[in-house]
Design a protein around this nucleic acid. Structure first.
Lengths: 217, 217
DNA sequence: AGGACTTACATACGCTGCGTATGTGAGCTA
DNA sequence: TAGCTCACATACGCAGCGTATGTAAGTCCT
C-alpha cells in the first residue's frame, strides 16, 4: 500500500493549471492533504514508534514534504495529536456499537471493557494510544477530546448506577480505574508468551473485581 | 544533593598522578562514576523528560562526558533502564516497609496500593516509571527485574488467598490489574485541578473494586 | 619494581532529523 | 483580470546521537 500509482513523483501537480479535470475545490484539497498526512503518520508511528518515525520519510511517502506538515499541524506533536483524535474517534464508535448490541446495561458495560482489551491488543492502538501518546502528550485525561472511550464507559456506568445495579460510586472515577486495569491487562496479554492463558486469567480477575461494584452479587 | 563539593570542575582529576590521597581502588571509582551518571540522568529525565534530556548536558553536569555513558551503559536506553531499576528497587523497599507495618494481611494489601498511588504522584516516578519507561522500553512486565512492585503486590495477594480472605483468583493477574487501576488513578489525580477531591473519589472506587475480591464483604 | 596489557574514560567526527525562514505558484475575491 | 491569500516546497542552521579513536591510569605478571 501507500504509493497508489507512484507516478505522482512530483508533489502537487507541478505545472499546468491542471488542464481539465481534477478541478477540486480548495477545501477538498486541504482535507485530502491532511488526511494523507495523518494516515502516513499513523502508519509510521504504529510501525516504528513516534520517536523513531522520521517526518521527512513519512511525509515523502505521502507525496508531500515537511512544509505541509508544519503548515497544518504546527509540529510533530500536533500531528500525533491529530492521529490520536482520529483513532480515539474510531475506537469510540466501535465501543458504542458493541455496547448498543448488548441485552442488559451490565452486559453492555462488560462487553465494552472486553472489547477495549481486545482493541488494546492491536499493535497500532497499543503503540500510539497506550505507549507513545501518554509519554509525548501527557495524561490522556487532559487531551482535548478527553478520551471518548472513557466517556463511553462513564456513560455506561452511570446508567447502571441509575438503575440501581451497581453501588452509587462516582462514575467517572470508576471508569478511569477500570480503564487503567483493562489497559494494564492488555499490555500484559500482548507481551505474554502465552496470550491465551494470560487472557483468560485477566478476564476472570477483571470480572471478580467489577463484581465489587454490584449491589448484590 | 548531587554536586557534593562542586570543586571537581575538571573531569577525573586531570593531571598529576593524584599526588596523595584519593587512592581509591578501581572498583570503587567505577561504582562511583556509574552512580553519578545514574543520578544525573535520573534528575534530567525527571525534570525534562527522557526525549528532551540531552546526554551531553547531564553527563557534563556529573563532571563526565558521553564517553563514560556509552562505556558503561551502551546507549541512552541502557541508562534509562539502569535508572528505572534503581527507582524500582527503592519503591519496592518503601512498599515492603509499609506492608510490614500493617496489622492484617488485607490491610497490608490496601496500604500497599494506597502507597503506590501516592508514590505515583511524585513527579519523578510518574515521569520516568509511568510515562517514559513504558514508551521507551516497552511493557514493564518485560523489564529485567520485572517490576519488583508487582511482585510485592502479588506476594501480598497470595497470602490473602492462602488465608482464605479473598477468592482463589490468580495472584499475578490480580496484581497487574490492580496495579493498572492504581496507576491510572495516580495519573488522573496528579493532573487534576482539584487533586484532593479526585483522590478521595479514586480511593473510594478502588476500595469498592477490590471488595469484589473478598470472599465475604 | 617495572614493563606490558587492560580498561575507563575523553575527544573528534559525521550524520540524521527537527524547526524556521523564505520562496512560489495556484486559488479566491473584487 | 489584477492582487491578495494561502498551501505548500525549498533552503539553511543547529542540536543531539552514535562511533571511531586517542590516552592515561590501574592491574597483572615476573
Amino acid at each position: 500500500m501507500a504509493e497508489k500509482m507512484a507516478d505522482k513523483i512530483v508533489p502537487r501537480m507541478a505545472s499546468g493549471t491542471t488542464p481539465r479535470a481534477a478541478a477540486k475545490p480548495r477545501k477538498e484539497m486541504i482535507a485530502e492533504t491532511k488526511a494523507k498526512l495523518i494516515a502516513a503518520a499513523r502508519h509510521a508511528f504504529a510501525t516504528q514508534g513516534y520517536a523513531e518515525a522520521s517526518m521527512d520519510d513519512f511525509t515523502a511517502g505521502a507525496g508531500l514534504t515537511r512544509g505541509a506538515l508544519y503548515h497544518h499541524f504546527g509540529d510533530k506533536k500536533g500531528l500525533l495529536m491529530a492521529v490520536i483524535m482520529q483513532m480515539d474517534a474510531e475506537m469510540s464508535d466501535r465501543l458504542s456499537a458493541i455496547s448498543s448490541r448488548a441485552e442488559t446495561p451490565w452486559q453492555a458495560f462488560v462487553d465494552e471493557c472486553v472489547a477495549f482489551i481486545e482493541m488494546s491488543l492491536e499493535p497500532e492502538i497499543q503503540r500510539i494510544m497506550l505507549l507513545d501518546g501518554p509519554a509525548v502528550l501527557g495524561d490522556p485525561s487532559q487531551w482535548p477530546n478527553q478520551s471518548a472511550c472513557i466517556r463511553a464507559t462513564t456513560a455506561s456506568l452511570q446508567k447502571l448506577i441509575d438503575k440501581g445495579t451497581i453501588r452509587p460510586v462516582d462514575a467517572e472515577a470508576t471508569a478511569r480505574l477500570v480503564n487503567g486495569a483493562t489497559l494494564s491487562a492488555a499490555l500484559w496479554i500482548a507481551n505474554a508468551e502465552d496470550p491465551d492463558t494470560v487472557s483468560k486469567k485477566a478476564v476472570e480477575v477483571f470480572l471478580t473485581l467489577v463484581s465489587g461494584l454490584l449491589v448484590e452479587r
